[in-house]
């Protein structure tokens, strides 16, 4: 495309009209804010909360299996990918041979965290998600280093809901689709998430 450079028009003949326009605009906005519903840009926080998106990256969550134990298998992917190095994990052994491993310690330093959501991207087990909780308050630094239990039971979760989590847009490769179809037609099996519990 050819470069289309335009020269801005400096010859604007300034006057005093915009000053009165400004006064009128302010008055109009004030009245609209007061009387027209949905026109106001502000809300009465904290009584009312902003409507934040379902992708919001707030405080993390650890998901649980059906028996209440963490889904996390302490693979350290999140701790590896974390650019802020805020995740600390210690691994232990589980008796079940199918799972083998789980985190005996799992701590996130929420003061270091940059809420980039890479831990969610890196998790191969859908064990770490983010909630929409964003009004985090603590009285000491130590209080905001939250541990496994705290991550599994975020008190405000019911109120705020989950935020950023892996979404599958079904961009499966053609060969996979073929393999899955074969499985379905030959064995009648429709695979979902692997059942690890």
């Amino acid at each position: 495309m050819a470069t289309s450079v335009i020269t801005v028009n400096r010859d604007t003949r300034p006057g005093y009209y915009p000053i009165f326009y400004g006064m009128w605009l302010t008055l109009r906005n004030m009245l609209e804010t007061l009387f027209v519903k949905g026109r106001s840009a502000t809300i009465e926080y904290p009584e009312k909360k902003r409507n934040i998106s379902t992708r919001y990256r707030g405080v993390h969550l650890l998901t649980a299996r059906e028996d209440g134990t963490p889904k996390c298998v302490a693979c350290y992917m999140c701790a590896t990918v974390c650019p802020a190095e805020c995740i600390y994990i210690e691994a232990g052994e589980r008796p079940e041979k199918k799972i083998e491993k789980y985190p005996t310690r799992f701590e996130i330093d929420l003061l270091r965290c940059v809420y980039c959501g890479f831990c969610v991207d890196a998790c191969p087990e859908e064990a770490i998600l983010m909630s929409r909780e964003n009004d985090l308050v603590g009285t000491s630094r130590a209080e905001l280093v939250i541990d496994r239990e705290n991550l599994m039971h975020r008190g405000k979760l019911a109120e705020v809901g989950t935020g950023y989590r892996p979404v599958d847009h079904d961009v499966r490769r053609p060969v996979r689709v073929a393999a899955l179809e074969r499985l379905k037609s030959e064995h009648g099996i429709v695979p979902g998430m692997p059942n690890r519990s």
Binding site: R173, V175, A179, L183, H187, P191
Partner: peptide, 16 residues
């Protein structure tokens, strides 16, 4: 390469 196998068809052996 892309995978052509499915989880349900894998042979299981002794673990741990």
């Amino acid at each position: 390469h892309d995978s052509r196998t499915v989880l349900e068809e894998k042979i299981h052996k002794r673990k741990v």
